[in-house]
Design a protein around this nucleic acid. Structure first.
Length: 886
RNA sequence: GCCCGAGUGGCGGAAUGGUAGACGCAGGGGAUUCAAAAUCCUCCGCCGCAAGGCGUGCGAGUUCGACUCUCGCCUCGGGCACCA
């Protein structure tokens, strides 16, 4: 008997699509367009199951929309700049360019067998000079439009490697490679003025109806719009040039509870004090040894240094407060200075207890009203509290009311003014690295910073670089930075910083609409294809990548590279979960964990064993603490975690495709878990998926064989429609089929792919057991193949073709359910007694409530529960449920 | 530390405020087979002989009815501006 052979049919149908150019995106004004985009991958060298899941979801949408008559754009590219290429060059030699392009070739070869409906003619990598040259052109346009500027910013500096470190390269305050304590250092860097757009980026979130609420909320919090009071505390005998400290606070209502002033170690005053005082200098230096990440600042022990300076409270000249330099105050936010109100802020309270500062309650809870001890009293601003120190509002008022009144009071008394501030900071894009897009400016002694001329773009990265010494290879390259000033022609020096790789990924979606245009975009193409109708990617990009892209779309509109309608580039966003796997661990003689790949482990009687004893790199067998070879019954199974190389819990899609085929991998990653949640890869699940596809194929093949015996396809062409009028088993099958069309379609439309898969499983069972006539079963199998086509396209084509379908299933129109077949004549009404299901009755769909009540009251279970009495209440929800309250 | 999310059988999960556990995995029983693989049929939340009772992380609440809504906890995961 014929068998399902994925290796053969997948190759066959991929060739057929290729020959047909099925997935070539076609600018067809006569058809509505649909742009589906998955976040493009970083070319690490291997695709992983997360990629398979991400791209399969996009492929389902792309193929489905194509069947629905849309002209679909579904491109793929590579987010190809970034640190791993340089790390590889440092660790293993070689060149980042070779490493990256080699990885791209490998990953493309691994991806192609998945049978994704991608228009590969639009492929590009962000490290292509063609791409980054256009990015440089846009940078120059943005510079001319005033969207880019330079200022000082703080970086992590490794004093041994003489290099700037990324936050992830700082481990417990030390450089990951050198182990040297990291310092903070100020460098002049390029910034995009994203904070000018803060209010708009915030307001426009409301219009993004098809974005997940959680992503919008995260962005709202990130932008962090706040209304507060900016005011000054007068210094008592401050140093020369300092008579006041400007403070921004969102809680001016607690001003009467202030007990100290805190300033950032990077504050102008702190720097001035450092000069004359070694102790201050030492404290600030210690603060600067911390990393730059917010996480590190917030979790570090809160420390302060009493400057000895005092300020006067604005409401009482006799009331003086100490001024501390504190390690947790960011210079970038507000004014770099705060007043501390320990009673109503936990961090301030911890600080006050540590340094023996007073704690003054300004309000207490309406009930209870205990004074603050070791836990600050921080109720929601909407909660009414009793004020002990109000100035200008009622004794009982909410925080919000008090804040408004406090701002008003302060403004009236000339103490300060209400201001709106944003947490969002400008986007620093300078990176002191080689493998990124060069910033196209020139430093000229006479003219200063001069933009490169557009005709000189791209400013290409030099190929002759080495990574065998510390520092930025561009900076120490003997000739690359030497150039002439575009303005005066004098000898000048190129900017050696490159751009943040987030810049690359902030406009690639626009480039896909015209990937080979000689300008960053082609407005006619952008106008047809934009916006991205469905964007799909990981939740880890919820804030930065998506916010930067939204900013870039606006900047591109201002500089004429995108039409106004593309201001919000992603109409709909879907964030998918990760693929996880169990971790298999043993311990070596020293008790250190040793991790094992899934393929090294086998299961017997529910326990995990190693297939063969472990060897180390030199081939010696590893031993456990008692000297036995590490082998059987030593494997500890740790619950699922994100797949990572270090834990070896990775499953290689290539080996899955080789043993089961792409359709099985695709079917599996779509089944089981809802797309937005993590899915656990299990070999049993993969085998089940494969078994099912084989079953579907066999059912279809059986129908095809019956057809052959009955005279071939032609006989059924004319009878196909006749199936609709058949009664009995034919009708039952067709009802189930049309219900399945409806359910699967709804599942795809709502990103409930797992439920679509479940409905297809269920329908397969129905079809397998159906006694319907051959034409009805043939129709059912063909429609089922169509419904499966977005998920398992090769299998679907094969079934379509063996049952006599015309052309490619990829080009067949999506089936529509017949409404008449969706309505059941009889419905089963569950009967609840006091909310618990106790019985059920079958009634005609449209029976009126009074009739239903009569039947219910005659039901055995109801009679028993009533014990002869009357029900207290009888609720009939027509067509759904009945509840009897006794 | 701050922000966001998720918790349902042995496992992954399903369920417009209306039959909790669809569908799949694992497991039990059976058919087929010399035997096995493959395939097919069937049972399967927990306690209980049964009647019945209990069940959606924990504790309250709203409702005729709550996995679903509200409040308070617990646990796990993601993000925190130079990883991408």
């Amino acid at each position: 008997m014929a068998r399902y052979t994925p290796a053969e049919i997948e190759r066959k149908w991929q060739d057929a699509w290729e020959a047909d150019a099925t997935f070539r995106a076609c600018h067809d004004p006569a058809r509505p367009k649909y742009y589906v985009l998955e976040m493009f991958p970083y070319p690490s060298g291997r695709i992983h199951m997360g990629h398979v899941r991400n791209y399969t979801m996009g492929d389902v949408v792309a193929r489905y929309k194509s069947s629905c008559g849309f002209s679909v754009l579904h491109p793929m590219g590579w987010d190809a700049f970034g640190m791993p290429a340089e790390n590889a060059a440092m660790e293993r030699g070689g060149h980042p360019k070779d490493w990256t392009y080699g990885n791209i070739a490998d990953m493309r070869a691994q991806m192609k067998p998945l049978g994704l409906s991608i228009d590969w003619s639009r492929e590009f990598a962000t490290c292509d000079p063609e791409y980054y040259g256009q990015q440089q052109a846009m940078f120059l346009d943005m510079l001319a439009a005033g969207l880019v500027y330079r200022k000082n910013a703080t970086v992590n500096w490794d004093p041994v490697d003489m290099t700037v470190l990324a936050n992830e390269q700082v481990i417990e305050g030390k450089g990951w490679r050198s182990g040297a304590p990291v310092e903070r250092r100020d460098l002049t860097q390029w910034f995009f003025r994203i904070s000018d757009f803060a209010d708009e980026l915030l307001a426009a979130l409301d219009g993004l109806e098809n974005w997940p609420e959680k992503v919008k909320l995260m962005q709202r919090n990130w932008i962090g719009k706040s209304r507060g009071l900016q005011m000054a505390f007068g210094l008592v005998d401050g140093p020369e040039g300092f008579d006041r400290i400007e403070v921004y606070t969102t809680r001016p209502d607690t001003l009467m509870g202030a007990s100290f002033l805190g300033i950032s170690p990077d504050h102008r005053l702190a720097k001035a004090l450092e000069d004359g005082n070694p102790e201050v200098a030492a404290f600030c230096a210690e603060c600067r040894r911390m990393g730059t990440s917010e996480e590190e600042l917030e979790t570090a022990e809160k420390k302060g240094f009493d400057t000895g300076l005092r300020v006067r409270h604005p409401f009482d000249p006799e009331w003086e407060l100490p001024v501390y330099i504190a390690n947790f105050i960011l210079m970038d936010y507000g004014t770099g200075a705060i007043f501390g109100c320990p009673a109503h802020d936990q961090r301030d309270l911890d600080f006050a207890r540590k340094y023996g500062l007073p704690v003054t309650d300004t309000f207490v809870a309406l009930e209870g009203g205990e004074p603050v001890g070791e836990v600050a009293f921080v109720p929601p601003k909407t909660e009414a509290v009793r004020w002990l120190k109000a100035f200008g509002w009622d004794e009982v008022a909410t925080g919000e009311q008090a804040i408004d009144a406090a701002i008003r009071f302060c403004e009236e008394n000339g103490v300060g003014h209400g201001v709106t501030k944003f947490r969002l900071r400008d986007w620093g894009i300078s990176r002191q690295r080689y493998w990124g897009c060069p910033i196209p400016v020139v430093h000229c002694e006479g003219c200063g910073v001069v933009p490169e001329r557009k005709e000189n773009l791209p400013v290409r990265l030099p190929d002759d670089v080495s990574f065998d010494q510390p520092g930025n290879p561009l900076d120490r390259h003997p000739t690359w930075a030497s150039c002439t000033c575009p303005k005066c022609g004098a000898a000048a020096r190129r900017e050696t910083d490159t751009m943040d790789t987030f810049v690359d990924s902030s406009w690639y979606y626009a480039r896909f609409t015209a990937p080979h245009s000689a300008t960053p975009t082609d407005l006619a193409e952008a106008d047809y294809w934009m916006n991205v109708d469905q964007y799909i990617g990981g939740i880890e990009h919820a804030i930065l990548h998506l916010l930067y892209s939204r900013f870039f779309a606006r900047a591109m509109q201002i500089t004429g590279h995108l039409p106004a309608k593309a201001k919000e580039p992603f109409d709909a966003l879907f964030t998918q979960g990760m693929v996880t796997h169990e971790i298999y661990m043993t311990r070596d003689a020293a008790g250190r964990p040793v991790y094992h790949l899934p393929e090294e482990v086998e299961f017997r009687n529910g326990k995990a064993y190693l297939k063969r004893p472990l060897q180390d790199q030199s081939g010696d067998f590893l031993q456990d603490s008692s000297g036995r070879p590490l082998f059987a019954n030593d494997v500890e199974v740790i619950p699922s975690a994100k797949m990572s190389k270090s834990k070896k819990n990775v499953v290689d899609p290539v080996s899955i495709i080789e043993s089961f085929g792409a359709d099985t991998a695709r079917w599996f990653v779509l089944s089981d878990s809802p797309p937005e949640r993590d899915v656990e890869w299990t070999s049993a699940g993969a085998e089940a998926a494969h078994r099912h596809l084989g079953r579907v194929w066999r059912i279809a093949n059986g129908i095809a064989e019956e057809m052959d015996q009955g005279g071939g396809i032609a006989v059924y062409e004319s009878e196909g429609q006749g199936a609709a009028s058949g009664g009995g088993d034919d009708l039952t099958l067709r009802r189930a089929l049309h219900k399945t069309i409806h359910d699967v379609t709804m599942g795809i439309e709502s990103f409930g792919f797992n439920t679509s898969v479940a409905k297809l499983y269920a329908f397969t069972n129905t079809l397998a057991k159906s006694q319907a006539a051959l034409p009805a079963r043939r129709e059912a199998a063909m429609v089922m193949a169509q419904l499966m086509a977005p998920m398992t396209p090769h299998l679907a084509e094969d079934i379509w073709s063996m049952l006599g379908g015309q052309g490619l299933i990829a080009r067949a129109p999506w089936p529509k359910p017949d409404p008449a077949l969706l309505i059941e004549d009889t419905v089963t009404l569950p009967i609840q007694i006091n909310g618990k299901r106790r019985s059920e009755i079958a009634v005609p769909r449209d029976m009126d409530a009074a009739e239903v009540e009569k039947l219910v009251l005659a039901d055995d279970a109801v009679l028993k529960a009533l014990e002869g009495g009357a029900p207290k209440k009888l609720i009939v929800v027509p067509g759904r449920i009945v509840n009897v309250v006794v």
